[in-house]
Write a protein that binds this DNA or RNA. Structure first.
Lengths: 199, 199, 199, 199
DNA sequence: AATGAATGAGCCTTCATTCAT
DNA sequence: GATGAATGAAGGCTCATTCAT
């Protein structure tokens, strides 16, 4: 294949991506609130106007970045779960995948742990939908395990904290420099997760 | 006892408390970063100057509030642990106390979950000390259990996430309006915590 | 006549008219200064580039709209005056026509009352010329009346305010929603105008 | 009287007045919309913060200036009307006072003729109230004249345009440099006003 | 003729903090 | 101890206009 002149659409896409990437760096370094539009813009080597043309506002950038990231994490998780046949395999897969994805994408992981993003109502709705879809997809599989007695019958809201809570909390400590790599405890934590929800 | 004229010291104390209380409300409603000094000051019905006279800065207010709160939570937890004789009782007490304290003090719980406070180096040191003292106090007891074989030998960093991770994550969801009261699952989560670390 | 494919010229004309119409709506709703090019462009369903291709600038749109409107108002007024034989008939015709035109074209009337258009030197010259031509045309007729003693001898600048002042002021109030329709008082005001300048 | 040290209140008042005065100059020179906060602030030799401390926003300055000015104009007019005994004297007093006030305060007059101020709902309400009070006060006197048959019975909305319309329109032309001083025609216009509304 | 991405000067406003009274 | 006027750096955002496609 010979290199072809990029189309306008391609360039536009690239520009948006470069802004998102610059924003991620800034957000990780100083936090979303503390990041100025000028910081992102300088890093992405684009003009303020360009940033506003594509994202409408600073929060617009933060929101798109968040949503795109969540989508990637979720779809990766679901792909992995689809390949898991049994309850134990599935539950442990959640812990393993979360640990692996976080260590492979530390910046994105850090960003997902942010608590200071002021999402617009639209973004909130969007996120709630994504979460709902995701939970539904996961539970489709788990429901079968529960019925068959492979997993315990628990309040619906309890599964996620029981399975993911420890590894998430540990990851948070790791990102804050207060604990070792999640990969060192993922086996242990996967075992604990399975013990917490098995039938 | 007849009502006596409040001393100057008493009035000063009351004023400080009213500022801390106003600050807590603001921080919960809009976040620490997004809260302006003027917001607190208006709510506490005091002047800007008065606020600065007592706390030195906005972060000063946030820090004192955080530290006082952590101290209350920790000392309550330690009091409870002191009354627990066995490993299982102790581990479960952690989960129970965290759940109970959070449901009794939702605003303070929400504040402790904030991730956007820009602590001064002094405050950071202060907090690190508090945390160290607290961990030390807790581990003093746990170390005995581990030695006796009542609790498993695990990486030091793993105990807290395994024991508190699920209930913390669940509390976070509850504070965000996305799950029922922690009191409904605390028994279940205490059991899981014990399973995760028992010998 | 069967519908024919519109010529390029026709399409261009239509596009320009649709932009002018969209601009008029915007200017009336938010004022000229407060209207952004993007507002007009969105309303006219054309691209920014297209707007600039046809009008050169935002002020270009405002100016063309203003000039076209003034021309229509003036030529209508002159047509009516040409049909008036006597002084009284003429003076009253001014009041009647202004009232009728304004009630028939409220948006255009409102636009002519704007005071915040930053005309280019060229446009100013253009407008001064138009006004001069118009005044000259009107005065050609009035001068005869004055000479014959049908109208009073007054400072040149006094005629227009005396004749049109009240109906203009009333129209302004009506456009601001603070008075009834001009048609209800035009007879009265025409009479007053005539009394103010008759010989 | 010996010069005393100005109180804080006095200084605050003076600062507010100096800002209003600077704003008036700017608004007259470039229009309200085109005036930047920095323009006012530089001219008043105060900081941005100070301006916002006292007026809340740029529109806040424009509104207070407008309201204060209207109040002065109205109260002056009412004082003058109170001293007029007869209908003719009163009607002519309106024209004379408007002409005199405008020539004595050309900047304020120009400002009142602005059409591009974006008043807040509160300011609009305030202005409507002022206008209502003023109209009521004026009409209290006029109603007696109408009853006695000294003035004609006309639609309520018609009196002001008939009496003030010409002198206002003329003043506008004068302020725009397109006519001589109002004082040259005020006698003539007062006469016309009286003819337009006399019994 | 049409499109819309890109530009960057400039605007309004916020806010933590100081300090004279 | 209390008050609130004053400060000015910094931030988010708008917008007219250009130009390559």
């Amino acid at each position: 294949m010979m290199p072809t002149k990029p189309t306008r659409e391609t360039r536009t896409k690239a520009r948006k991506l470069s802004i998102l990437s610059a924003a991620l760096d800034c957000f990780c370094e100083k936090g979303v609130e503390a990041t100025a539009v000028a910081d992102i813009q300088r890093r992405a080597q684009c003009s303020v106007g360009s940033l506003y043309h594509h994202f409408g506002s600073k929060e617009g950038v933060a929101e798109e970045l968040f949503i795109v990231t969540i989508q990637k994490l979720n779809s990766g998780m679901l792909r992995k779960l689809k390949r898991s046949k049994h309850a134990e395999e599935s539950v442990k897969a959640v812990v393993f995948f979360y640990s692996d994805w976080s260590t492979r994408n530390p910046k994105l992981a850090r960003y997902l742990h942010s608590r200071d993003i002021d999402f617009s109502p639209e973004a909130k709705t969007r996120l709630r939908l994504l979460r709902r879809e995701y939970i539904a997809s996961v539970f489709t599989g788990f429901a079968g395990f529960v019925e068959r007695g492979d997993m315990a019958v628990l309040p619906a809201d309890a599964y996620v904290p029981l399975i993911s809570g420890p590894i998430q909390e540990y990851t948070r400590l790791w990102l804050a420099g207060q604990a070792g790599s999640p990969s060192q405890v993922k086996g242990l934590f996967a075992e604990a997760a399975w013990n917490a929800v098995k039938g």
